[in-house]
Design a protein around this nucleic acid. Structure first.
Lengths: 178, 178
DNA sequence: TAGTACATGTAACAGGTTACATGATTGA
DNA sequence: TCAATCATGTAACCTGTTACATGTACTA
C-alpha cells in the first residue's frame, strides 16, 4: 500500500498527471521511491476508486489530454493517519552482494566490472543529487520547515550514494590485490 | 527470480533446510537479503521442480524431520551464469523518507519518535554486524578469498547502518531547533 | 502451563515487472 | 524520415505479505 501514500505525498501540494508523477521519480523524489508507469496508472485508478484523489481531464494544445489528479479531503486524512503510524524499515535485497558472496564462481574481471558499473551508477546518481542540492537548497538556513524536510530526504540520498561509492572503492582495492 | 539465486548462494557450500535458510537471513546474510519463511518454502519447491536443488528428508531425534536441500550441478551452473550477468541496482523505497517529506502533516513529536525508532533499529543492526565482524573476521589479512568476499558483504551492511545513523542524527538535530 | 524453538506448509491477496498497444507532435 | 517526448493504458505473470494450520520438545 505504500506506493499509494508515496503518490499522495507528491500530489498533496502539487496536483499532477500520471506521466508527471513518473517523471518526478526520476528527479530528487527518486531518493525515496521509484515505480514503473504501469504501476502508477493502476494505483491512481485505485486511489480514485477509493475517493482519495479526484481526476480532471485537461485538454492541451499540440499534446494529448492529461488527467490531473488532486488529493481530496479524505485522501489528505488517510495520508495524515498513515504518516502518524509506526514506520517500517525497508527490507534489504542487494543483488550485487549476492554476486559478491559467490564471487569465486566467476572470473575476477567479471566481478570487477560489476563493481565498477555499480560505482558509476551511484556516481551519476550523486551528481544529480548534488545538482538538486545546489539548485534547490542553496541557502539551507533560509528554508521553510517544509522545504527543510525535503532537503533532508535529499541528504539521505546523498549519504547513501556516498556510502556505496566508498564501499565500491573498498572492494576494488581488494580485487586489485588478487 | 533473485530470491532463487540468493537461496542457491546460501546452499552452494552449505546444504540446509528451509528453516535454517530462514535463520540465516536473520544473521550476517541479513545484510544482503531477507525473505519470509513462506516465500522460502515456496521458492525451494520451485527450485526442486526445475532440478536446481535436490531434497533429502533427515529424521532427527526429539525434533521434527527436516528437508535438507543440496544444489545440483544444473543449479550450480545456473547460479554461475546468473552471477556473470549484468547486475541490477535495487530500487529505492523508503517509507520513512515519504513520511518526512510530508512531515508537516503531523506533530513534531511523532516525527521525532519515527526517527528515533529508526535510529535504534539501525543501532541494533550495527551492533549485530560488529559482533559478526569481531567473531568471524578478526584477522582480515589471513582470510581466504571466499571469506574475504563474505567479509566485504558484511562491510557493506556496516557502512549502510552507519550512514543511516548519521542521517538520523542530522534529522534529530534539525528537529531539536524547531 | 505458558512460551519459545523446532519444523513445514497452504490459500488468498497485494505489489511489482514485462510485454504489448496506441497515437500525436517536435526536432535532428 | 527517424527518434524522442508527451500521454495513457491492458494483460499476463511473478514476487512478496498476511493469515491460517499443525504438531513436538524443552525451559521457565
Amino acid at each position: 500500500m505504500s506506493l499509494s501514500y508515496a503518490l499522495l505525498a507528491l500530489l498533496i501540494d502539487c496536483p499532477s498527471s500520471g506521466y508527471e508523477l513518473n517523471k518526478a521519480f526520476e528527479t530528487s523524489v527518486g531518493c525515496f521511491w521509484k515505480a514503473s508507469h504501469q504501476q502508477i496508472y493502476r494505483e491512481l485508478g485505485k486511489l480514485e476508486d477509493s475517493g482519495w484523489v479526484k481526476a480532471e481531464s485537461i485538454p492541451q494544445q499540440g499534446k494529448p489530454d492529461k488527467k490531473v489528479y488532486t488529493v481530496t479531503e479524505l485522501g489528505r486524512q488517510a495520508l495524515t493517519d498513515w504518516t502518524a503510524q509506526p514506520c517500517n524499515i525497508s527490507p534489504v535485497k542487494e543483488e550485487i552482494l549476492v554476486k559478491l558472496f559467490v564471487g569465486n564462481l566467476v572470473e575476477r574481471e567479471v566481478l570487477q566490472t560489476h563493481i565498477e558499473t555499480h560505482r558509476r551508477r551511484y556516481e551519476e546518481r550523486l551528481a544529480l543529487y548534488r545538482m538538486f542540492e545546489t539548485k534547490g537548497f542553496a541557502d539551507v538556513h533560509s528554508l521553510s520547515v517544509d522545504d527543510h524536510f525535503r532537503y533532508l530526504t535529499l541528504r539521505c540520498g546523498i549519504q547513501d550514494a556516498t556510502s556505496w561509492i566508498a564501499w565500491c572503492d573498498e572492494v576494488l582495492d581488494y580485487l586489485a590485490t588478487l
